[in-house]
């Protein structure tokens, strides 16, 4: 158990390759067949879903493997970039956004945009404070002398 866990990056990689073989087998199986068309909604075939899972597993392996290398400030950028790529795959294919009405995508991307605004303004604000406001003793005395209404 411990040995498997210690090589979790290899575990992910082997899962990704296993998934790749299953994907290829699934593609062979449906070759020449027509995809069924539902009356509404979009139906995604197993080969495409398996392809997406394979890509997701390879990306997971990549992000875990990169975390062992110190790239300085680039580590965050790589991790977030890979996460965003994975999130796009999940939302476009697993959540059918690619074939959905565009308005659903507008709602979803809009919520992410608003989240970005929220985080961005919070970051702008939090950078504007000094840790110590009254670091100058003379200033402190002045503040106690002239700051209070009784003084």
């Amino acid at each position: 158990m411990e040995a498997i866990l210690n090589n979790v990056d290899l575990l992910i990689l082997s899962a990704a390759f296993l998934c790749l073989f299953v994907t290829l087998a699934a593609f062979r199986k449906v070759r020449g067949q027509d995809l069924p068309h539902p009356e509404f909604g979009h139906m995604t075939g197993p080969p495409l879903l398996l392809t997406i899972l394979t890509m997701l597993l390879f990306l997971t392996w990549a992000t875990v493997a990169v975390s062992y290398i110190d790239l300085g400030g680039m580590n965050v950028v790589v991790a977030m970039g890979v996460a965003t790529l994975k999130a796009s795959l999940v939302s476009l294919y697993f959540m059918h956004l690619r074939w959905d009405r565009p308005f659903n995508a507008v709602i979803f991307v809009g919520s992410l945009f608003l989240l970005g605004l929220f985080l961005g303004f919070a970051l702008l604000d939090t950078g504007e404070y000094k840790e110590v406001i009254l670091d100058d003793p003379f200033q402190q005395i002045q503040a106690t002398q002239y700051g209070s209404p009784q003084g």
């Binding site: 866990l5 979790v8 990056d9 575990l11 992910i12 899962a15 879903l49 398996l50 997406i52 899972l53 997701l56 597993l57 997971t60 875990v64 999940v90 697993f94």
Partner: peptide, 12 residues
């Protein structure tokens, strides 16, 4: 990482 794999598989 194991949990990530479990969750991705459950998504499939």
């Amino acid at each position: 990482a194991t949990n990530t794999m479990v969750l991705l598989f459950s998504s499939l």
